[in-house]
Each structure stands twice: as C-alpha cells, then as structure tokens.
Write a protein that binds this DNA or RNA. Structure first.
Lengths: 215, 215, 215, 215
DNA sequence: CGATAAACGAGACGGTACGTCGCGTCTTCTG
DNA sequence: CAGAAGACGCGACGTACCGTCTCGTTTATCG
C-alpha cells in the first residue's frame, strides 16, 4: 500500500536525489493511529498527524495520496504491533481452547479494532484490495486463531474432518462485530460462551461440557 | 426521527402561516438515496441532495438536523419500500422455511442495504440511538424474520424451547454482512445453505436433511 | 474592480438567493489595509485579513479572485479615506501655492502611499487597468493638485498658456517616487524647493523669487 | 554580492576539496533572467531557475542566500551585457547631446529594465542596500550619462556652474519610469523631446533650439 | 598516486500560505 | 410565512514554494 513508486520490473530508475526516509513511515503511522484513537476518524486531521509526527504535510502527501490511504496503511501497520495470536492455548479439547481465548484484554482489543474498522468501512467499497488490508490487520488474526484451534481438533480426532472450519472460524468474529458495531452492546464472557456452547460446539458435533463448570 | 416539532403536546402555537409541505419528504429522501448510491457516502453532499430534490438547503435542515440524520431517515424510509418480510414462508419445517427464504432478489436487496450500512458505520459510534435506526431499517427485518421462523418451530415442537433464538437469528445476517463488507465475496445459495445446514440446524438440535426425518 | 458579476446589458439574472452583503466590503478592505500596514505586503495573509474582518476566507474569495486583487481594491478604496487635496492653497502666485503644499504631514502620507505602491508594482505589469487603480488612488490626487495650481496660474495670466502642465504636474510626484523608492532618501523641504525653483519655475518661464526670501 | 566567503581575511581554511565552479554563475544568472522575463517576478521559482540552468537548488543557495539576492545579482550582471553608456555623443551642445541619446534601442532597453525593477520593488523596502544594487544596475547608468553631458556643458561654459546637475540628471529617468510603470504609456521621441525642451533646457537657462529642427 | 574534502545534480524534508470545498446557519426574495 | 436560492463563518483539504538537508557522484588539491 505504501509503495507509490510502481515496482515495475527491474528498477530501471536509478533513484537520484535524496532518498525518502522510510524510517519515518512507522513514526508517521504511529502518530496517525494515536490521533485516530484520540479524536476518532472524522475528527482526525492531516495537520494533526503531521504535527504529531513532527513532519510536514507535504511529506505525508508524498507517501500517501490521501487521508484515507494514510489511515489504511496505519491500520495495516497495526497488524504487527497488535497483540498477535502466536501463543495459542492448548488445553487438549476444542472447547477448552476456545474458552481459554476469552480474556478481557482480548475483548478490549477487539472492540478497539472494530471501532477503527467502522471508520474505514465506507471506503472499503471504493478501493479494491483496501478491504483486504483492513481485514488482514483487524479481523483475520482472530479468524486464523480460531481456524488453527479447529484444525488441531480435527488432527487429534476430536471433531470430524468434514467440518467447514473456514466457515465456523468466522462465526465468533462476525457475531462480535455485529454486537459491537450494530447492536452496541458490550461483549462479555456470557455472550462468547453462548456462541461456543450454543453454536460452535453443536456445529462440530460436540455436546455440552461434560462437567457443568463453564469458567 | 423526522419530527422535529412534536405536535402531540400542548400545541399552544396555532401553527400560523404556510404549513410545512410534508409531501416533499419522500422526494427528498429518494434524492438522498440516489445520491448516496451514485457517489457513495463520503462523496455525498447536502447541496447535491438539495439540487436533486429541487429543494433549498434550509428546507433539508429544517427537517433533519444534520447530514447523518437525513441519511438515516432516507435509509429508514427504504424500509417501507424495500421488500418486507410480512409474507413469511411456511413449509412446515424450519429448514424448509429457511431455505425458502433464499431468493436472488432478497440477496441483492441485502447487499444494497449493507453498502448503505457501510457508509453509515463511522457515524454509529458517535450518535447514540443512530445505530438503532440503521439496525431497525437495514438488518432487524431479516433478523425478525429468522426469529419468527424459529419461534414457530418451537411452537410446533420441532425444536427445543431452550434454543437461544435471539442469538441464532443473528447468525445469518452477521455472517452475510461479514462476507459482503469485509471479505467482499458474493453471497450465493451455497453459502447460505452451508450456514443453515452447517451451523443453524446443528445448533437447534436438528440433523442434516439426509432423509426428510428430523430425528 | 469589485464587480465580479459582469454588469452585462440589462441584469437578466434575477439574482435569487441571499444578496452579497456589500456593506462588508469596506470592513474587509479596511482590515486588509490594516494588515498591509502592519505586516507589509509580503507578510500579509488572507487568513489574517479574514480574521481581522471577522469573515470567512471563502467570503473574501467570493468577492476578489486572489490576494492581489484584494489588495488592489483595498488601495483603491484608500482613495476616499486618504487626505484629499480638495482644499488647495491660493496664495496668489504659483510659487507661493506650490511652496504652501509642502507640509510634513503630506510628505509622510506620500511616503506611505509609495511603500504601498512598491508592493503592488510587480502586479501592475500583468493586469491591465490595474495600474490605473493604483495610480488613481496613490499618485493622481497629487498630480491633479499640481495641475489645478498651474491651470490657475495660466488663468490669472501668471504663466504662459503654452506650458505643458500635464507634463509639469508629473515632475514632483515622479521625482519624489524616485527618491523614496529607489534612492531611499528622505523627502524634505529643501528637496522640494529645489524642484520648484530649479525645475518648475524655469520651465514655466518664471524667474527665481523676486526677493530672496523663500518662506 | 556573490562572494559569500570573503577570501580576503585570515584564510584559516585551506579550501580543501572541489572548488566552486564559478563558470556556472553566468549560466545560472542568465537562466534567472530568462525565467524572470517569461513568468514575472512573482511567478518565478527557484526550482524553475535551477532546472533551466541544469543545476541543483543547493548550488544556487550556496552562492546566493535567497531568491531576492539571486535576482539582484542577475540584474546586476545585466549591467555588463546591457548597452552601456561608455560611448557618449559629443555634438558640441547640451541639447544636441541629449537629443542624440534618444534611440529606439535605448528606449527598449530602458523599458525592459524598468519591468525588472518593478518586480524587485517590493523587496527594496526590506533589504537594506538591495536598492543600491538595483539602482546601480538599472537606473544609475542612464543618470550618470546625463550627469556627464551636463558636466561637459558646464566645463565648456554653455551652462551655469550653479546648475544642480545631480538633480537635473534624475528628471528624465524618473519621468520615464513614471510613464512606463504607472501610466503604462509608451516612451517615444516626442515625450523625451518635451522633457528636454520643456523642462531641462529652461532649468539650465538655455532657450529653445535656435533653429526649429529637432532631428 | 591514492585519500579526502568540498561541490555537484537531484530531490526529500519541515514549514507556511494558497485557493477550493463542504457543513450548518442566516438572509433575501418569490409565491 | 414556507420555500428556493445562495451568501455567510468556519475549518480541513490537497498543492506549491521556500530554504535546508541528505543522498550518491564528480573533481580538485593534499599527503
């Protein structure tokens, strides 16, 4: 997204003159994310971002063609800094794993990401491939985590290999998004447990928890 | 939303002079929807809507306090004109009813509504109650339809009364929204059937439709 | 200069909508002159003028197409407010009248006007008719005063009717401008008296003052 | 003006490294004059000059501290290339000499120089000593020529030694400047002859030409 | 002769003013 | 008096230019 110079074929341009200082990119994007978080999408201003990053407005426009693109890239870069799901729980059962992923911190993080997503949403229709960036940064990590947990359950024979895990891994994220963005209700453990026990477990052919304890 | 002067109370003002011509409201809202569809939310302008409706800007602001509210109302009015779900299928089985609701026309309608929803989304965070209007106009009808179908299934004893139909009726809409807005993939019968057979039916304790029996 | 709406033929446009509030013009122009005087031409900013006049930038640009035109008009309006030469001396002799016009206040005024003229000068080449406005506001009043004094001298038979008073009335202004703008020397009585006695009086065929006294 | 590092003093720096290529100076100044003539002072850009001279912007700023100084120097260098007044006419009479200096080429040159002067004028107020450079390059040569002619007339006893030739030599240049820059009328022989016969000759105590022929 | 230090073309940098556009309000005139 | 037309104050947008800085390269002097 950042590449404004078309990568073309073999860099036939010798790139004369001062090089664009790409070490500033992260600083600018971080400033953009700060302002985005503080003032919201609509209140965000290019001058604010430039001032926060101690950069000139022209420097921003040299790298991103518009305010929208800048935000997109800022969100995309959030992917790295955001809490990743590299450390997945491994409790031995799918339900145990899913329940283990219910953490207040994770919920807060999801809600924040969804707020950002809401700001971007109107632009997703217009710019092809833009949705991919937002998805990859904001939603896909969670989806991927779900998919991995289910894949493990298949491998250990806990659930049938015929389960459509690509579909099932989307259910929690989409329902959380719906609840936060549309219904504007808080996401809590009870809601997530309802999803696990009322939707996901039946869908993979597993019954309710053998012991009654749910947390 | 539209009523800025509540006529219900005291009415000490005899409403002198020319009455507000409320026959113009639909025209203005239609113009708003046209512009919204043509230029997208961000590109939409109050002046555009006013010009399209051959109305003055002040006339619009006399009726709606802001651009956002106008759009909300425009969307809300779409509710009436849009294909409502007053005529629900009644095939005798829940699965039959759900499948019967899969119609190309209905899918197209949903996608259009979701595009509008996308444009509104960034505002839903700021304006309290605004999300309710959007939800009521764009998503709730479908949810309500699902709920009714499930309620009937409970009443006829097809599924357990313990099913969380408030939760389950949200699954299809949220998954469709996710698919259209985030993944930008088309919604087709196959996808919807996967949801019905892979998620909903197991969740309500019904098996796959191998034979007509519902176990 | 202010008329941006072409006066055309017969006002075929009914001029619907709110009228442009032309009572604001003088306020804006006055603000422009203030800023011009305080910060100089180069330091002057449209936002400064707008803020000073408590007007929006768009209001200024609706009336004047650019910063330059605004200044021009501001200068032109100065014509009215500036000290006019309606009260010319009448001492009975041309030399007496010319000497009577040498006043410290008048000199200061001239120098200020010339500083403004200097700021405008680079634009005079590009815009046809623009020079006329500047001339009419900044220099012509003085020239006209000289011309009147000489015309009176002709009428009373003091000097020959063959004198090229259109030419001679320009000498003092042009020499003063040259001295102030190019040589950057102060204009004082001695300089002006040198012009009167060394240039103007010989040119109209009058000798030096009959008695040696010059004041 | 060009010497930023004064080589006269101490010279503690051994001037290592590549020497500044001063053969580029004329090319750059010529480019500056071209751009100045084509786009006017306000439209002129350092980047334009650099591009035209196939030089880097830093090269220009290494030699001249600002845009204004560059232009001044460009104008000053024009002094050499412009038609100088080293070959003054010597017809034996002051009037003959003055009339002999009226040449179409000279008039064109003057008008061009005045256009440049106009562009510089707004800066003359701010930069001390800048006016001197402009004056020395653009106006003083003509003034000096007039002064020499009048000095010769004094020396040959044609006119009184009491004439204020410093003042009188300014009259033609100032009146020409006024006519070109303010009145925007062409300068022709008739105008210049009017000045000679109507102003200068009377001022030095000489009558009209003995014979009626003026050329 | 090789090291070194400055100047070179090119262009990115921080900053600032420009002129445009949209919002929501206010004013004028018409029906 | 409602309604159309549109000017108003405000403020963000994206562009252009200034004067400085940083690249990688070239060139002249010094060791």
């Amino acid at each position: 997204m950042t590449q404004l110079d078309i990568p073309g074929t073999t860099e036939h341009s010798p790139r004369l003159g001062r090089k664009r200082d790409h070490t500033r990119d992260p600083e600018i994007l971080a400033a953009a994310l700060e302002v985005l978080a503080e003032t919201g999408y609509d209140g965000m201003t290019i001058d604010m971002v430039a001032a926060r990053a101690k950069a000139g407005k022209a420097t921003l426009y040299r790298r991103w063609p518009s305010k929208g693109e800048l935000i997109i890239d800022a969100v995309a870069c959030m992917k790295q800094s955001g809490n990743d799901y590299s450390r997945l729980p491994d409790t031995g059962s799918l339900r145990g794993d899913l329940v283990a992923m219910i953490k207040p911190l994770s919920i807060k993080d999801s809600e924040k990401k969804l707020q950002i997503l809401a700001g971007l949403m109107s632009m997703l229709s217009h710019d092809p491939g833009l949705a991919d960036a937002a998805n990859a940064a904001l939603l896909e990590p969670k989806v991927a985590a779900n998919r991995v947990l289910m894949q493990r359950a298949i491998e250990r024979g806990e659930i049938s290999a015929g389960c459509d895990i690509d579909l099932l891994s989307l259910i929690t994220p989409s329902m959380v998004a719906y609840r936060v963005l549309i219904l504007r209700k808080p996401v809590d453990s009870a809601f997530l447990l309802s999803l696990i026990d009322g939707v996901l477990m039946p869908a993979v052919g597993l019954g309710p928890p053998t012991n009654g304890k749910t947390d």
